[in-house]
């Protein structure tokens, strides 16, 4: 291993660094020493390895067999973190410089690099008393958050979809639930779908396909024919794919199975004015 043994006070600082208990003054001293004697890094790594080896001493227990099965099952659906065969694994210096240089690129390689430097930082110390580590961590976290924001939006949309699907399943499980089938009018012939309603329940689920997305400011309205009067049940828009999957709450419970969908230009319609695009069968 190393040919020299660092003097005791320095060893003490190295140990403190790994344990995360250095004062700011101690941190300064150690960082200066690390710059002057880069060979100290090997010593540091050895102490990190020592601390991380403590769990070996715990009683030998094994996880249940199904953990292995589930893991191997899960990875068939999850892509591995990719480095091409023959490419050198990223060195420590590369990871550090990428962490401190903000970049606009959001490709897949960027994300793991940040996580790598964060993991390395976390691995260096036990506690959060080390102020220097906190600074690095804050910077790394800011970068991670920038990358997370668009993913969070996707997740929110997916969760809303899932909530509607669960509502649909619950409704379909009730015996009194009815399905009203809707068909597209001339010019909207490919449009089709159903409205799911339960007598006595103000919630209805609208599930449609092949409805074209609208211009901003335009809405699809669902109307129910109640004794000759058209009552607004709610409004919605179509996704890029032409699909609609929404839950609407009716102002009152309705028994009407005569439904229609129009296109309107205002968010506060009380009577249909725009063209009718879909209508319930018979």
């Amino acid at each position: 291993m190393a040919d020299f043994i660092p003097p005791e006070p320095l060893q003490d600082l190295l140990a403190g660094y790994v344990l995360g208990d250095l004062t700011p003054e101690e941190t300064n001293i150690l960082e200066q020493q690390l710059q002057q004697q880069p060979e100290l890094r090997a010593e540091l790594q050895q102490l990190q390895e020592t601390l991380a080896a403590m769990p070996y001493a715990l009683p030998a227990v094994h996880p249940p067999v199904d953990v292995r099965d589930r893991l191997l099952q899960t990875i068939t659906t999850v892509a591995p973190a990719a480095t091409a065969l023959g490419e050198p694994l990223v060195t420590g210096t590369e990871v550090r410089s990428m962490a401190s240089a903000p970049s606009r690129r959001r490709d897949r390689q960027r994300w793991p690099m940040i996580m790598g430097s964060m993991a390395a930082l976390v691995a260096l110390a036990l506690g959060v008393d080390n102020w220097r580590l906190r600074q690095d961590l804050v910077m790394a976290q800011a970068e991670v958050n920038r990358q997370i924001a668009p993913l969070r939006q996707d997740l929110a949309a997916a969760k809303a979809q899932l909530a509607s699907q669960k509502d649909l399943i619950a409704m379909l499980q009730q015996p009194a639930t009815q399905l009203v089938t809707l068909k597209g009018m001339d010019g909207m012939a490919p449009a089709k779908g159903n409205v799911v309603m339960t007598p006595g329940d103000r919630a209805v689920i609208v599930a449609l396909q092949n409805l074209p997305p609208l211009q901003p400011g335009q809405y699809y309205y669902l109307w129910a024919n109640e004794a000759g009067q058209k009552v607004a049940c709610g409004k919605f828009t179509a996704a890029e794919t032409g699909e609609v999957f929404v839950k609407l709450i009716l102002p009152n419970t309705s028994n009407s199975k005569q439904l229609a969908i129009t296109v309107e230009n205002s968010p506060t319609m009380t009577a249909p004015q725009g063209p009718m695009v879909m209508v319930s069968e018979s």
Partner: peptide, 26 residues
């Protein structure tokens, strides 16, 4: 399971920074 899935999915572990064993325990 979480930890090994992370090993599969993430490039967080870099061999030049330390042993796999210490990465896993950390």
């Amino acid at each position: 399971q979480d930890v090994f899935l992370n090993l599969w999915q993430s490039l967080a572990y870099q061999p030049d920074r330390g042993s796999l064993s210490s990465f896993l325990t950390t």
